[in-house]
């Protein structure tokens, strides 16, 4: 699957979209926090009336992003909030860490790439199961991933 350059490293302005309710922030320090983060994400998706499959996709994406933090950055946070746009509700997941950063984003977004062990499907997988995906990273400064899922009508 081809990855377009424009989607990477560029934070798109969120047009016509307004935050709803309060942010949830889950600090990620250990593997136990992964479970907490995805539990919170699922609760939010259920509360917004997402379809069962989409609730699971949101929880799965959070699981991937939180695990990346544990594996590569030691600690960071997962921020969850709900947003409204024209005629739809959505969830924004923001995963932030101040770890070593990703030197080659293009490579990191390629299937099968991993600086740790295993298949390394984390980031491209998240991009596939979410509706919108943005990533920015600075070496030695950390990585921020923002992913959105909109409720299907």
């Amino acid at each position: 699957m081809s990855r377009t350059r424009s989607r990477i490293g560029v934070v798109q302005p969120a047009t016509g979209e307004a935050p709803v309710g309060e942010d949830t922030c889950v600090p990620i320090h250990s593997a136990a926090d992964i479970l907490e983060a995805r539990k919170r994400g699922r609760e939010l998706a259920v509360a917004l009336g997402f379809a069962a499959t989409d609730c699971t996709l949101v929880a799965t994406a959070i699981s991937e992003l939180a695990r990346n933090i544990v594996l590569y950055a030691d600690h960071g946070e997962i921020r969850l909030n709900s947003v409204a746009r024209k005629n739809s509700m959505g969830i924004v997941i923001t995963a932030r860490d101040d770890g070593p950063g990703i030197a080659d984003l293009q490579r990191a977004m390629r299937d099968g790439f991993s600086t740790s062990h295993g298949l390394g499907l984390g980031l491209p997988g998240v991009k596939r199961i979410m509706d919108e995906f943005e990533i920015s990273s600075k070496p030695k400064r950390g990585t921020t991933v923002t992913a959105r899922k909109w409720k299907c009508q």
Partner: peptide
């Protein structure tokens, strides 16, 4: 494997 989980696994590319 739950139906929703099966969909997520497949869509992740696994």
């Amino acid at each position: 494997i739950q139906p929703e989980v099966a969909v997520a696994v497949v869509r992740l590319g696994l």
